[in-house]
């Protein structure tokens, strides 16, 4: 699609060039579009980051591609054109870094595993309600970072309760988006997602049992074959600075210790 658009714009540019040979040459600093591959749970914060960054660097626009981090890994492996990879964990970009496909990942934000309850019914008001027969729970598949964190959370619970919760699971989704979608519609009574997801519209936050908090680390790396390597590196430096930190905190993320 982008390719076709490029071809079309390209042809139009050529046509325009033919019609108006006196057209001035493009400005010295051409606007750059950075391709950002971002974990699905960053869907809400990346536009805010993008807006803040366009004030810091007016010549650079962010173009985001959201998916489950494991999908993005596969896309980078397949040679997709990307400048920056923002993963919902550290393992995935580390795997790519070991293969020389991205630079070593740097943690730029932290999140927490959270229980999101549907606004459509009041079935799940506390953690105990999840254990009730008939409760419909959705999580992420274990291939997805959010699914891995969910597994870590279950492992912190008494084993009988963890087994009961596993029986309550009606779907293991391929991304956090899938979990949130099903909880919002009320097809599931609750889902395991991130605190930042629960904060945004409509979902109810159900506190986790004490002592079972699971922290999620978001890691950023520049892609080795990035079309705009210098701009990508500059964006990553900005991402760990105070302006980006404020945007991330506003969205409910925590920041790693400097």
């Amino acid at each position: 699609m982008t390719g076709r658009r490029l071809v079309v714009t390209g042809s139009l540019a050529v046509l325009a060039g033919c019609a108006r040979p006196e057209l001035p040459a493009p400005a010295a600093v051409a606007p750059v579009t950075l391709q950002v591959f971002a974990a699905a749970s960053l869907r809400e914060v990346v536009p805010a980051l993008s807006a803040a960054y366009s004030q810091a660097e007016p010549g650079v626009t962010l173009l985001a591609n959201y998916a489950g981090s494991q999908d993005l890994v596969a896309q980078v492996q397949a040679g997709a054109s990307a400048d920056v990879f923002l993963s919902a964990n550290r393992d995935h970009p580390q795997k790519l870094a070991d293969a020389g496909l991205v630079a070593p990942p740097v943690v730029f934000a932290l999140n927490q595993v959270a229980i999101a309850a549907t606004p459509r019914n009041q079935r799940v008001r506390s953690y105990r309600d999840l254990l009730q027969p008939g409760t419909r729970l959705v999580i992420c598949a274990e291939e997805v970072p959010a699914g891995k964190y969910a597994g870590q959370w279950l492992a912190k619970l008494p084993s009988a309760e963890a087994a009961t919760l596993r029986e309550r699971v009606v779907s293991a989704e391929a991304s956090v988006d899938g979990v949130l979608h099903k909880v919002r519609l009320g097809e599931a009574d609750a889902g395991l997602a991130y605190r930042t997801d629960v904060r945004r519209g409509g979902l109810r936050d159900v506190p986790l049992p004490p002592g079972t908090a699971i922290s999620a680390s978001y890691a950023a790396s520049t892609v080795t074959a990035a079309p705009h390597a210098a701009e990508a590196a500059a964006f990553l430096t900005w991402l760990r600075g105070p302006a980006a930190g404020q945007v991330l905190r506003d969205a409910g993320f925590e920041l790693p210790a400097p």
Partner: peptide, 12 residues
């Protein structure tokens, strides 16, 4: 199927 039935080994 993914949207309407979800994904759970042994179930959907």
């Amino acid at each position: 199927t993914l949207l309407f039935a979800g994904n759970l080994p042994g179930w959907t």
